[in-house]
Design a protein around this nucleic acid. Structure first.
Lengths: 209, 209
DNA sequence: AAAAAGAACGAACGATCGTGCTATTTTCTG
DNA sequence: CAGAAAATAGCACGATCGTTCGTTCTTTTT
């Protein structure tokens, strides 16, 4: 007998399969629009068969949320860690983030969840808030390194710049969904360069002698 | 007999009452989470009584969407029209917009709808897209006036600046919902001033002699 | 091969969904 | 005040929701 379920096995494998389908469904319909019946039909199982892998719908939603964060981190954060601390890493994060926005242009689970649960209370709200706060914190740290390196002005407020970068990513998703990705990306990248220039220690354009 | 229903009358009055409740419900649960049963209970009527005022759920959602836009325009746009064209009007729009974000901090129907319907198709998607495109267009025009007045640099791309301003408002709602309104507003206003300064025809801080 | 354990199924539950149809009540009109 | 017209209630429908339960099929262990 196994005291704890092994992470590789039939159970874990189908659970992962279900989560994959659930993630795609939640991307389109939101976490609140994710229904077990539709998920079961999508994955080719019975409702109860799917249900048995998660004690409740809420636990399923939570699992999707964590799967989403994992994907985000391994597509956006981890590749950026290979670059040196400071501005290069910040730039890499933003570049990866934009590409992430391209792959998941029709709905990002994490962003949708943030707007779905920001006004309520419960485990889902708490998880979403913790995720968002954690990622914002990491952005602040990455920006802080750039300040320490002298790549950004010493008067830079990391949380302020993190807010402004996050704003661009929200607008990227918003505009990509409504007006098309290409123009949204153009606007985003232009705005990001303006942002970096405006926080640069050397004046970006008009330099005083 | 009346050939067409007068805009003031019992029918129109209760329809307005229902819409008021529906708007508040949709603000919390989203347009997709708005159910006729819950709405009827909230307004103190029977399901069919409520239903009779709108031929279908979709028509109800559409009415809420238009009610939301009306409120937005009369709280954000119309007061700003009293100010002269150009930068003052742009500033007024942003200021009103931020205060609008305060009043409706736990969920804005229009923004929620934008993320709910950006990936689908149908009347609701079309309406949301039209609304958003229209408002963006108005922002571009307001910014264009400021450029013509010489209050913003001649190389200013209105659609680019409109994108960046919209980004701040999205981030305001996002952060206000998750982390509290006050800090979100602080970040938003600071970012907006940086934005205006960076688009200013005279260099904001370091001026070349 | 027999027995034990695990995984998925199928049916059913109470509830709620949007939507019709028919009364009944309310309001307006002559 | 009576009768027409409008507004609302009541009820029922098929569908779907999340969830539970007992059964069946598959896999592993003895």
């Amino acid at each position: 007998m196994s005291t704890t379920a092994p992470s590789t096995g039939k159970r874990a494998a189908t659970r992962e399969l279900i989560l994959e389908h659930a993630y795609e469904l939640a991307r389109r319909e939101g976490l609140e629009g994710l229904s077990i019946g539709a998920l079961a039909q999508d994955v080719g199982m019975s409702k109860s068969g799917v249900f048995a892998h998660f004690g409740s719908r809420e636990d399923l939603q939570l699992a999707v949320l964590e799967a989403g964060q994992l994907r985000f981190l391994q597509r956006v954060k981890w590749p950026a860690l290979k670059l040196p601390r400071g501005l290069p890493r910040v730039r890499a994060i933003v570049a990866n983030w934009v590409e992430w926005g391209y792959e998941y242009r029709s709905g990002c689970v994490l962003l949708t969840a943030a707007s779905e649960y920001d006004g309520r209370e419960g485990v889902l709200h708490d998880t979403v808030t913790r995720q968002q706060a954690g990622w914002r914190e990491e952005m602040c740290r990455a920006i802080g390194h750039a300040v320490e390196n002298g790549e950004l002005g010493t008067d830079t407020d990391p949380s302020q710049l993190a807010f402004e970068i996050y704003a661009l990513m929200l607008a990227l998703h918003h505009d990509a969904g409504l007006f098309g990705f290409d123009e949204a990306r153009r606007h985003t990248l232009v705005a990001f360069e303006r942002l970096i220039a405006s926080y640069s220690p050397e004046p970006g354009r008009r330099t005083a002698p």
